[in-house]
Design a protein around this nucleic acid. Sequence first.
DNA 1: GCTGCTATTTTTAGGTC
DNA 2: AGACCTAAAAATAGCAG
Lengths: 229, 229
Amino acid sequence: MMMKKTNKSSQGRQKIPIAKIAKRTNLQVTFSKRRSGLFKKASELCTLCGVEVAIVVFSPANKPYSFGHPDVDSLIDRFLARNPNFNISLADSCQQLGEAHKNASANELNMHLTRISNQIETERKRGESLDKLSKTSECWWENPVDELGQDELRILEAAMEELKKNVNEQANRIWMESSNTTSIASSFFMMNNAHHIFENSRSSDQVGSDSINIPRAYDFGFAGNIGLF
Amino acid sequence: MMMKKTNKSSQGRQKIPIAKIAKRTNLQVTFSKRRSGLFKKASELCTLCGVEVAIVVFSPANKPYSFGHPDVDSLIDRFLARNPNFNISLADSCQQLGEAHKNASANELNMHLTRISNQIETERKRGESLDKLSKTSECWWENPVDELGQDELRILEAAMEELKKNVNEQANRIWMESSNTTSIASSFFMMNNAHHIFENSRSSDQVGSDSINIPRAYDFGFAGNIGLF
DNA sequence: GCTGCTATTTTTAGGTC
DNA sequence: AGACCTAAAAATAGCAG
């Protein structure tokens, strides 16, 4: 109806091929916009369908960004729990650990235990989500484990041996329960501008939880703030 | 130009509020469509900007779906590598393990070692990405570890004690390297219809790698294919 | 569950500030 | 890096099969 404005301020969205963007500045802008779009889509999916979503993005400069509802770490935990060899015993596990270490470099060793201790800590922090399952387990295995310092492994090894017998039945019940319930206890979103920490500082940079957070400076003991988005 | 068809077959896209969808069937369809959309957006972001993205979604029925470029696990590893307590020793780690186990239920115990063995396996499978770092490590720690069966832990414990001294320097170098390179060696996408395995079967259901994969049936020893998306 | 359809909403490329 | 603008491109709600 209206005549087209002569000083057309924009020709609107242009079609671009899905291939690596050449222009650095362009790429940067697109990365920001599409990352936001992706996180928005994710949060909509969470709300609309009552599901849980975690996203991790590493920028071209290797800077991590993340979105998580209810939070990235618990979802990663849960995802990693899809278990290829569920019937492994603690002894086997430790043997594997040893085997792996035999052929590992110093760095690999560190990463091993980095990851393992990380897992353990995360594990310890939750556990409330597993409370409902506690009731179902017999306590026979708790008795022998009492004052285990360095010998805990042996004892647990034996316990595990027994434990294996109950795993499948238990697993069955767990899965049945989880597939019957649609309730995803969820109360907030988190969009994290994630970060690497090699010392012990922990900067948060989380977006979400109703409002946008205030960006914080990174705290690298050795490198300061890594540039480039 | 064309007159509008009287038998309008559709009123097109309807606006819906971003709130939990009430109708189960509707929710299911929306979940599928939007999940696909999300994964597509993610893959476009990867291609356009040369970045790495991992997504994990748990459906209302708790079934995990995932997208990852180049793959979910390595990105999760990398993400988890932002390490709150990098200086922990293997001894500490094992003690923590023991402590945690002391207060854990049978299921929790299994999940502990499930996760740990999982981590170990993942770790063993890669390592090629860390090859460049192998050179930098001294081999002093390899000598004592030779015929370690049940005693591997003690030996490694000692080794770790020494190893701690090199960690920070090593970490520094790793981080420097990774933040200086923009090259994200990437050659394919993976869209995993992930799964829980409580026995030992490993179904892949991976989409991507240039083409769409052929869906496979799940292989649960106890429950067959778990319904609901 | 899926594919296809279509009308509409939503995203976003390329600008400017 | 953001916020805003425009108009074209892309995603998708509701329905059919």
